[in-house]
């Protein structure tokens, strides 16, 4: 109990220290270069009050959400399909690996060229980035499938469909979540990048808007808001995962973090 209290105290001390550091840097550099924590908060308040923050955030989240579904759903289903088609699977795997290795964000200019500076190009970037992340995580799950459990279910009289429903699907859930957990911050990040390159709305645009006005307050406020959204989305996914996977022994912080992608 005392060690827990100590941890809380430590964390507060570190947090206050970081804020102080920010404040000192601000005082040394000036508002033009770095707005103070208070100024940033004020600017966030202004943006929130005027409804601008919500408008831009909604745009970014919409792009991330559409792209997530567009890329994530095929990435989720394909491994299950390929499980039954080993030859097809072996044939396309090198292409998938290449697609995974490729920096999808580098395709952003191409998508902007194709789809214009509207939401479509952002959705395309997010979908391209999400697809491979989800695909490879789920694929690992389908591969790691415990064959003994499949066999046992068959011995107990399970049909092909029942094996899929009762053994393969629940067994893959942790991996599906690993994919979703990895892809969530990535999807939001990808939408923001596409907006940074070319857009007239969204959180990425808000950062660029601040930059073009040499307004550090707006830039930092937009970055803080985006970070908060990513952290919020992460905790929603984590809570959902904890609930769906309550049958699993609890794993530590490092175990979860080790499968992350940033």
């Amino acid at each position: 109990m005392t060690s827990r209290v100590r941890t809380v105290v430590d964390r507060v001390v570190v947090g206050v220290g970081l804020l102080l550091l920010w404040q000192v840097a601000h005082m040394a550099a000036g508002t033009y270069w770095l707005s103070s924590p208070w100024q940033t908060l004020q600017r966030l308040g202004e943006l929130a009050a005027s409804g601008e923050l919500a408008r831009h955030a909604a745009y970014t989240l919409r792009a991330a959400g559409y792209g997530f579904v567009l890329g994530g759903v095929p990435g989720l289903l394909l491994p299950f399909l390929l499980r039954r088609l080993p030859i097809v699977s072996a044939t396309i795997m090198p292409f998938m690996v290449a697609g995974y290795g490729l920096p999808k964000l580098a395709l952003a200019p191409l998508f902007i060229l194709w789809f214009g500076i509207g939401i479509e190009s952002k959705v395309a970037v997010v979908a391209a980035a999400t697809f491979f992340l989800v695909f490879f995580n789920v694929e690992a799950g389908v591969r790691a499938l415990d064959l003994k459990l499949v066999r046992m279910a068959q011995i107990l009289g399970a049909s092909e469909m029942q094996v899929a429903r009762h053994v393969i699907l629940p067994g893959a859930v942790p991996f599906v979540f690993a994919g979703i957990r990895t892809a969530t911050p990535y999807a939001i990040g990808a939408a923001v990048i596409a907006e940074l390159i070319s857009s007239n709305r969204g959180l990425g645009y808000l950062v660029q808007l601040g930059a073009s006005n040499f307004d550090a307050r707006t830039m930092i406020a937009a970055v803080v808001a985006t970070t908060a959204i990513v952290v919020g989305a992460n905790s929603v996914v984590n809570a959902l995962e904890r609930w769906l996977l309550r049958w699993r022994p609890r794993s530590g912080f490092a175990a979860g973090a080790a499968s992350g992608e940033f």
Partner: peptide, 30 residues
């Protein structure tokens, strides 16, 4: 035909319980 249409039961060395099912649900699984 594993288990020959439920004519042959098999208790393996490992328990092979489905980890996402409770004890009762595992027993009721067949």
């Amino acid at each position: 035909r594993p288990g020959f249409d439920r004519q042959i039961g098999y208790v393996t060395q490992e328990d092979n319980l489905l980890p996402w099912r409770t004890t009762l649900d595992n027993v009721l699984f067949p």
